[in-house]
Amino acid sequence: MSVRGLLLAAVLALLLAPPTAASERHPTLAELEHEVMCPTCHQLLELSDAPIADRIRAFIQARIEAGDTKSEIKQRLVSEFGEAVLAAPPTRGFELLAWLLPILGLAGSGLVIALLAWRWTRLKPEAAKPHLVNGFSELDPKLARRLDEELALLDR
């Protein structure tokens, strides 16, 4: 199950991670407002009404009209304001670590758990007492009756 879950997650990641090519070539202001921070207020551009946020919106709108791609616009913004203007770090270089660590952590601990669980499932039941080997039928009738009584008590 966990393996299947991980696979699913991986597939989803592949499906979801690269924003579709259309939005890369023809970005909209609303999209970029979601991916760019207002540098003075540490909020998404979308949420901000600071003066610089208005300026950035105007800039983005102008660049879109000039036909820039999304990554070009982002690159321009980074060169003006530094990397912190991007709402999420780029997936390369040192910043890749931000994305990779949780995924690797999940995969790693998933592996450890899978390994442990597999080992636990192979563990033999606690050393069986010889007189009880065949279970149910061989349960001492007196003890069996007591067990039923206990169960009934539990059900009141």
Binding site: H34, H42, G82, A84, L86, E95
Partner: peptide
């Protein structure tokens, strides 16, 4: 020494 943001898209 580089400041970055980790925000909603992440």
């Amino acid at each position: 020494g580089v400041s970055i943001s980790i925000g909603p898209p992440y």
